[in-house]
Design a protein around this nucleic acid. Sequence first.
DNA 1: ACGCTCAACTTCAACGTTACAGTTGGCACG
DNA 2: CGTGCCAACTGTAACGTTGAAGTTGAGCGT
Lengths: 337, 337
Amino acid sequence: MPRMSSGPTLKGLAAIIGISPTAVSMALNGRPGVSDELRARVRAIAAEQGYRPNFAARALRVERSNMLGLISRNLSNPGYLRLIDGFSGAAEERGYQVLVGTSDLDQARETNMIRAMTNRQLDGLAIAPIDGKAVLATWQDESDRPLVLVNSARSARSSGAMSIRGNASQAVRSAVDHLLELGHSRIALLTNPGLSSASERVSLFRRMMKAQGLTSRVISGGTADETVERVVRALSGDDRPTAVMTDSDLLAHYVYEAAIETGLRIPHDLSVVGHDDLPTSRLLGPALTTIALDRFEIGRQAATMLIGALNGDEIDRPHRELPVELKVRQSTAPPAG
Amino acid sequence: MPRMSSGPTLKGLAAIIGISPTAVSMALNGRPGVSDELRARVRAIAAEQGYRPNFAARALRVERSNMLGLISRNLSNPGYLRLIDGFSGAAEERGYQVLVGTSDLDQARETNMIRAMTNRQLDGLAIAPIDGKAVLATWQDESDRPLVLVNSARSARSSGAMSIRGNASQAVRSAVDHLLELGHSRIALLTNPGLSSASERVSLFRRMMKAQGLTSRVISGGTADETVERVVRALSGDDRPTAVMTDSDLLAHYVYEAAIETGLRIPHDLSVVGHDDLPTSRLLGPALTTIALDRFEIGRQAATMLIGALNGDEIDRPHRELPVELKVRQSTAPPAG
DNA sequence: ACGCTCAACTTCAACGTTACAGTTGGCACG
DNA sequence: CGTGCCAACTGTAACGTTGAAGTTGAGCGT
């Protein structure tokens, strides 16, 4: 029932001005082939008539939609808002619009999302993949447009796509080093399950701990409630960890909740290290020690890389790792006793 | 240079099967006019050939894009992530995709965003407007599709659009009542400037304070840094407020930062009441007393209302106010002295 | 056997845009 | 004064889809 109030079209404008639609198109799109004088006249009349180009028609014709897609793993982690913010800001600056979606950590949904987006003649896609390689396969099956993998495992790097992420090894290393220096020996890592990027971090963590002759403990997150519950359980044993490092500040928040539930005091009974540095993290009680990662910048650069590739530019470093920085605050301390 | 790997089109499929494109279209879209047998055959061959419908072409033809727009005021407030999450979840369930944008609290950008979205044959728009009336004017100028105003001022209600928001008067009332009961008399309200919905809250706040014979103080936020600075200044006078209530948890966070800067302890020297109840708010130090508002649900319902209207349904309550709930935690206490 | 109806298709045109291949006319040049 | 050239346009067709208006032929009642 609801229809667009049908404003004038290129053809309509052409009729009014008395020239061909092609000329109007060229005039409005700033392409050569029309005199400056006519161009000005066309612009004036277009504005006066309230002409609005029809993007669907344009997309059909030129096989470009001027839309970029952004698919995140979930939409509960505030870190993704930073990503969206950076991405959409950069995209809008260059005249692109942003289609968002989330896989919700579900492979099938991720594939569907990608398909749905390619149906729309999406010009490029940035995705924080569940499994980078699977995404690569799906995308290249569907489209030969630029793709940026965000925060994916190193193993998913390929010449077919670009990638950008925080420096994962630096992140794990600085967290572990910090905790070791404080004197911790029973350290647990809380990660999101099922992510190929997570397993990369896990193995790095295991290797570092082994090098110290220490055993490593890994806790897999799930839904919010599940995660808290699992952390509670992990913190209950006799040889419970004295420190937990996490893959995100959000996960660190769950540790805080678990600490409240178990009555452990942070940092006296338990040290916590996050990863992100959300704006709220320094305001937590106690302020969270975390590995700062500029997700806004990741979003920005992802969009910029996509648009660059669309313009045919040679992309500077197609596989980027942004530096991370340990912010020591109040949630870490030497282990008690 | 990058082009879609041109899969088969309706016409191509039709040629392969030996029937007309129209029949293929009817078969795939589940419309009557084809036998069950042919429908099955078409579906099988479409799948086998990897057929992907071209949404741009469809949009051009039917003047529907199957996209919904969501424009927020900014993308730094984590509350908007909840909104996006609820909105996109409901939209995806019904086969719609979501175009996001932000006005960044800039009128011109907001208007541009709306125009850019209508150019795309957007089917419906949910927007947290800077000025609801202005949005209404722009939108109705461009399109007669459904519009939902999110968190807009009551004054922007009109028959031309739907709306959904938290119960603003209940929110202001319960915050003020809570602080009055604790014994506060110098209460400040920290709001976002320039929002018509904010001025509605301000006037309600002023009225309530006046009814108590108390003077009211309003602090206008700005950028993050500006806001902290203004709060610091507001907290410096001799007759400084003993309590600050805010329009969002994000603003409450700024008050926390200002408190750190000025050395005031919460809640001993200063009580703080937020508005949102972000997941992190109960983990702050001290845990934030706040007015809980389910932004996820607002997003969900906004999308549902839009899609309902698109289906021609009679919308149940086109102007909705969700209840809010005061969560008393540790950031409020009786004033010292 | 005749007309009638209806399901199952086909044909045609159009949505708004732009690429490409013309066409025109003015002007410089030998 | 023709010839060639170029700027400034025009005309046509096509992108993939679908609505509307046909066309067919099988089945049915009389």
